[in-house]
Nucleic acid binder design. Structure first.
Length: 547
RNA sequence: UGGGCCGUCGCCAAGAGGUUAAGGCAUCGGGUUUUGAUCCCGACAUCGUAGGUUCGAUUCCUACCGGCCCAGCCA
């Protein structure tokens, strides 16, 4: 997707800012993740927005880790986030950590104390909660609200020096306990937390909170447009209040847009982590996960993810995107870019009784009928082949036009066969089919016209593989808990037979297994355990009508 | 019930006083095609409701209705 980002209400705001010269024509965004989990497709929406906007306006986009809560954050997450952004194909203009600003933040806090805009509170968390009031009732002032500036300064410094225990004191802004906006009721901006930080070690035992940190970090980085999700709308007045009170000359504009939600998925780092902890999935990069790393492992391309983000748009409306939009995006790309091969997921053996033994023939076929530049390959067929179990029905339902007893069907790229005999084991399971082929039908124009065409693989010229078939993570379109987990979200086909032309040494190539779907080699695939993951099915208007 | 937002086709989403109310996904027809795929053609909304302003409103105003967010020393 090299086309530019679609215009949206945010680009409209920027266009307007540019005409009024609000930021002298500058556009500088940032993507500010907290390193407390892996990035998911919802983050991709934000990443694309921020980076694409910077690109569109010849501006800049920073990557800044919002690492103000050492208890939840770690280096593994930082590395994975950088890795995912790079994989998406974006380059940040500069890399920052909120923790780099701890000193500045501390100094700004002192300024606010000096100016009478912040005070030290010794209230307990419970007292603070009580005094905050409710949605409909105003809060009441803390007993410490009028502590002297001198005392505030002295205690704040002692807090920093580690002289108090966790929770003993906090620094709060002095705004308005009666504000209808609860965020303005003297928010806590510093807490004591004697916890080793992944970057600053034990340098600090007080840590600034989001509301105080984020706006100042934006201002310091010269950000112009601070894009965030809807739940921060109520925080914008506080954001503006702080920038005004510290009197910073760069006052970024916070603009909120709605989060992405994808049907049949969860988009909460906490719950995704729970899926891992409770062994519903194998890890952050499990191909079923809506994480960037999971989708990458499954076989989604970075372009398809960017294209998807562009298609869904940016608004302030809460919305939920159907899986079909995502699936169609990757299908559209892969239809053009991926070579076709044949692959049988659940094999049934067919013996073509009138085909000579110990012989085989090679057939030249195009790699991608929708992209002839992909060239041709040679496939092999002989007396014994495999076809997929669901391409045969002993008692065919109406309009089933694949293989069934005494019916003729065409083998893709080869010739027509007719099923003459079903061979079953003692349990009644079909083990083999005996068919005859019509030599004349090698020439399509000469054989019988048949409606059905199925894929197959030569028994003597194929590779064994395990194929993972994925389905939606949750059955419910809007899962709220893990209870609705789809137990069939992973079905392992461990006896698949793939056409020998598949290039096992090229882990980056994606294939269409004809009539089935698009597949990608799993990262754990090896020469003695070949594993492919289904990225997405082909559309199937027949199967769909049945279920 | 305080405050902040949102409401255009099944799902997204343009449009901002006069438009045939874009486009994508989905769906339904039909045509190519021996991948039930792709591709191509066609069908598919009067804009949450009710009033008002106006020659004229999805676009402005008012009131309702419906939905989301906020009472962490999380972000």
């Amino acid at each position: 997707m090299d086309k530019p980002i679609n215009k949206n209400f945010i680009t409209n705001i920027i266009d307007n800012d540019n005409t009024t010269n609000k930021f002298s024509g500058r556009v500088h965004t940032r993507f500010p993740p907290e390193p407390n989990g892996y990035l998911h497709i919802g983050h991709a929406k934000s990443i694309c927005l921020n980076f694409e906007i910077a690109q569109l306006y010849n501006g800049k986009c920073n990557l800044r880790f919002d690492d103000t809560n050492p208890e939840k954050e770690n280096i593994e997450y930082i590395e994975s986030i950088k890795d995912d952004i790079e994989w998406l194909g974006y380059k940040w203009d500069s890399l920052h950590f909120a923790s780099d600003y701890f000193k500045n933040l501390y100094e700004y806090a002192i300024k606010l104390i000096n100016d009478g805009y912040a005070y030290i509170d010794s209230s307990t968390p419970d007292e603070i909660k009580q005094q905050r009031g409710t949605l409909t009732e105003p809060g009441i002032n803390s007993k410490d609200r009028d502590r002297s500036i001198k005392d505030n300064l002295q205690i704040f410094e002692a807090m920093k020096n580690g002289e108090y225990k966790d929770g003993e004191y906090v620094l709060r802004l002095k705004i308005d306990m009666a504000s209808p906006n609860i965020n303005m009721r003297d928010p806590v901006i510093y807490r004591i937390k004697k916890y080793k930080h992944h970057r600053t070690g034990n340098d600090w035992c007080i840590y600034p909170m989001y509301d105080f940190t984020h706006c100042i970090s934006d201002a310091m980085e010269n950000i112009t447009h601070s894009l965030c999700t809807l739940e921060f709308e109520d925080h914008r007045v506080l954001y503006d209040w702080i920038i005004d009170k510290i009197d910073h000359d760069n006052h970024p504009q916070q603009i909120e847009f709605s989060r992405l939600s994808l049907e049949h998925n969860l988009m909460s780092k906490r719950k995704l982590n729970e899926l891992i902890e409770k062994n519903y999935v194998l890890g952050w990069d499990d191909p079923r996960m809506p994480t960037i790393s999971g989708m990458r492992r499954r076989g989604y391309t970075s372009n398809s993810i960017k294209d998807f983000c562009n298609r869904i748009g940016i608004t302030k409306k809460n919305s939920s995107i159907e899986m079909g939009v995502l699936e169609n995006t990757i299908r559209e790309e892969l239809n053009i870019s991926s070579k076709r091969i044949m692959g049988v997921l659940e094999p049934i053996k067919i013996v073509i009784t009138n085909y000579p033994e110990n012989e085989n023939e090679n057939i030249i076929v195009v790699n991608n009928p929708n992209n002839l530049n992909d060239g041709e390959r040679s496939i092999s067929i002989s007396r014994e082949i495999y076809i997929d179990k669901n391409d045969f029905m002993e008692f065919p339902e109406k309009k089933y036009y694949r293989l069934s007893p005494n019916k003729e069907v065409r083998l893709r790229h080869a010739f027509n066969i007719t099923c003459n005999k079903i061979i079953k084991d003692e349990k009644g399971e079909i083990t083999k089919l005996e068919c005859t082929y019509d030599p004349i039908s090698r020439d399509m124009s000469k054989g019988n016209k048949v409606k059905g065409m199925i894929h197959w693989v030569d028994v003597n010229n194929c590779v064994n593989a395990t194929v993972n078939i994925y389905d939606r993570l949750f059955n419910d379109s809007n899962p709220l808990t893990l209870e609705n987990f789809n137990k069939n979200s992973l079905i392992i086909k461990n006896n698949a037979k793939l056409e020998y032309n598949i290039n096992l040494n090229d882990p980056n190539s994606r294939y269409q297994f004809e009539r089935v779907g698009y597949f990608f080699q799993d990262k754990n695939s090896s020469s003695d355990n070949i594993i492919y993951n289904k990225i997405v099915s082909l559309k199937d208007s027949w199967g769909k009508n049945k279920s």
